[in-house]
Design a protein around this nucleic acid. Structure first.
Lengths: 171, 171
DNA sequence: TTTGACAGTTCAATTTTAGAACTGTATGAA
DNA sequence: TTCATACAGTTCTAAAATTGAACTGTCAAA
């Protein structure tokens, strides 16, 4: 599979993965949410090679996740700022952090705590149903094909194709 | 950076990324949540090379995300099943899907719809504060160092080191 | 006039991944 | 019995991505 094909798959998860689904991109986005904005900032915080950093930033800008905004003329310098599309990645980031907090901490405990400004407390993120507000778990959710083709359907049709093919080969 | 170092970083997100932060792993996990359990199932659904699939499955088992369970003797065959640790990845998966649904759909609309068994409605996942139940946004959250070292501190100390180094070089 | 900050670009060497074929056990059909 | 198929991998080479390090170019401050 070529990775730019991912963005055209009839699966929202695959498309998302096509945009942010590699390690450096996720770490770059972590830095964005920690208020890093400049090339050198990302580079020194992450130790990523300058080559890759330039490439990833370009891609994120192309995808509309970051906006490249000049902060000085001569020499032209730009900052990379999260767009709304980028800010909307926040639940993904929090979900990643929370899983790590739950399953990957060492003896010392959590590296970071999160305070919710509105209520003033340290919190964990909880994913709930938009309709009834109850916490979600995999087992309580059923999947249906939507107006765009579903990966399940696609899977079935791929399997059909494979069978046809092998029959042809046999004939 | 070597990728197995990620798991030891004092950042829960980095550690999570070390486990599930590559494209194929995320797609394999998607299949797991869609009830795929066997080698051939993953391979034909995803088109991943058998080589990589074998490797990724091994890694997920090693990390405790999947359990490898025999379902027949002679020839020995195993299924790959999500552990609780794996099931706990569900919010991450849903967050990825939801972002794709919001920002990456084409004219045809969503590939999949999600029904919440408890309330019987099609829903979107919403991330809320465990303490007050309000939806979360990046701007309302403040980050504090926890008992394990924080990436912000680490960042600061790295920058200090870099400065010391450059001063030494100058001297 | 030299040094350093900043934001990249270039290039060879290494590492990962893709693609395809091969191994080995067992079942069911001809 | 022999052949084809299902299944779960392993092995190999070619292609692609990543690393590490050096280089480019502009400007400001010393």
């Amino acid at each position: 599979m070529k990775w730019d094909e991912l963005e055209e798959e009839p699966c929202s998860m695959a498309r998302t993965i096509g945009v942010i689904g590699d390690r450096w991109t996720l770490l770059i986005l972590r830095e964005c949410f920690l208020r890093t904005r400049r090339f050198e900032g990302f580079q020194s915080a992450l130790g990523i090679t300058r080559h890759l950093l330039a490439e990833r930033l370009k891609k994120l800008v192309r995808q509309g996740v970051l906006r490249r905004i000049p902060y000085q003329e001569s020499p032209k310098r730009h900052e990379y700022i999260l767009t709304q599309k980028g800010l909307d990645l926040y639940p993904i980031m929090m979900a990643l952090v929370h899983w790590g907090d739950t399953h990957m901490v060492d003896e010392r405990g959590r590296p970071l705590l999160h305070e919710h400004r509105k209520c003033g407390k340290m919190f964990d993120p909880v994913m709930v149903c938009s309709e009834c507000g109850e916490p979600l778990s995999a087992k309580e959710v059923h999947v249906h094909p939507g107006p765009g083709a579903s990966p399940a359907l696609e899977k079935a049709s791929l399997e059909k194709k494979a069978k046809l093919k092998s029959r042809k080969a046999a004939a």
